[in-house]
Amino acid sequence: MSKINKAIYEIHEMDEMADKNTNINRIHPLVKLILTVVYITCVVSFDKYDIFGLLPMLLYPLIIFNLAEISIKSCFKKLRVVLPLVCFVGLFNPLFDHTPLLHIGGVVITGGVISMLTLVIKGIYTLVATYLLVATTGIEKICYALRLLHIPGIIVTQILLVYRYITLLMGEANAVIEAYSMRAPNQKGVKYKIWGSLIGQLLLRSIDRAENIFDSMLLRGFNGEFYYSDRRRCTQTDYIYLFLWLGIIVGLRIVNIAGIIAVLL
């Protein structure tokens, strides 16, 4: 299986996870979207040296992984391309910040190392929370929640169409690459000299496909706004879930759990 086919398979696997009938999947999408935004905001708001304060924030994704029956291994497997970029963000912090903060066994740990680890943890928490939102909700329900928040329809439509038809674009790219490999069976990869022509062919094929899709949408009565199948209102369970997690997330942000445990120990 080629890398493009593997990527297409992983996207379809995400959609299948979102269609599961678990307790988390049944929660209203607006509630899960609000909680994700609040969680990411709280995680990002920690000081660059407060690495121990970030550790209790792991509670939220761990519980969601368990309730949604999602494998942590599969999560990091799907995020394998983005995670190195997150780790690269704070890579140069130790070179510029030499302030000594910790002494462990005679080893001095500088502020640059602490801030680098803090940035990495923040990035991982943010990516995992976003992944859990998509894996337990689905892009269509997320777009419906965005419309409930009065996000402009043109933006929501772009998000929905890009996600929905990215697999078609990847399929077209895979067809172009397979056609090239059949004409050059003994060659590994694609020569850089013809990258431009292949990308141009892919662009033309994508434009033709986009025009066909748009014509089909117009024939089905599309007027700039999608009809979302799940338009239910929030129930009592949704409100309980929302306020319970809001209390836990905000409490973990305000209360220094790590400091309390250190004092007790």
Results as ranks from 00 to 15, higher is better:
Pro61Ile: 03
Val44Arg: 04
Ala145Phe: 01
Val120Met: 15
Leu101Ile: 12
Arg147Pro: 04
Lys122Gln: 05
Leu91Trp: 14
Phe65Pro: 04
Lys141His: 11
Leu127Trp: 10
Phe88Trp: 12
Phe65Tyr: 14
Thr99Asn: 11
Ala135Pro: 13
Ser74Val: 06
Leu119Tyr: 12
Thr99Ile: 05
Phe65Arg: 01
Lys73Phe: 13
Lys73Arg: 14
Leu55Asp: 01
Lys48Ile: 15
Gly123Val: 05
Leu91Ser: 11
Ser115Arg: 14
Tyr144Met: 10
Ile154Gly: 02
Ala145Val: 04
Lys48Leu: 11
Ser115Leu: 11
Phe65Ile: 07
Leu58Cys: 09
Leu67Ile: 07
Leu91Pro: 06
Val113Phe: 15
Ile139His: 09
Thr126Cys: 12
Ala68Tyr: 00
Ile63Val: 12
Pro94Asn: 03
Ile142Val: 14
Tyr144Val: 02
Leu119Ser: 15
Leu148Asn: 14
Lys141Thr: 04
Leu55Trp: 04
Lys77Trp: 10
Leu79Pro: 02
Leu55Ser: 05
Arg80Gln: 14
Leu79His: 03
Leu148Met: 15
Cys75Ser: 06
Ala135Ile: 07
Ile124Ser: 02
Ile51His: 02
Thr136Ile: 05
Thr110Lys: 10
Leu59Thr: 09
Phe88Val: 10
Thr137Pro: 08
Lys77Asp: 13
Thr136Ala: 03
Ile70Trp: 06
Tyr131His: 14
Phe88Ile: 09
Asn93Gln: 14
Leu91Thr: 11
Pro100Glu: 11
Val134Glu: 14
Asp47Ile: 07
Tyr60Gln: 02
Pro61Arg: 00
Leu59Ile: 13
Gly53Asn: 01
Ser71Phe: 03
Pro152Ser: 06
Lys73Gly: 08
Gly112Pro: 05
Arg80Ala: 15
Val128Arg: 01
Thr137Phe: 03
Lys73His: 09
Glu69Met: 03
Val107Gln: 15
Leu133Thr: 04
Lys73Gln: 11
Pro56Val: 01
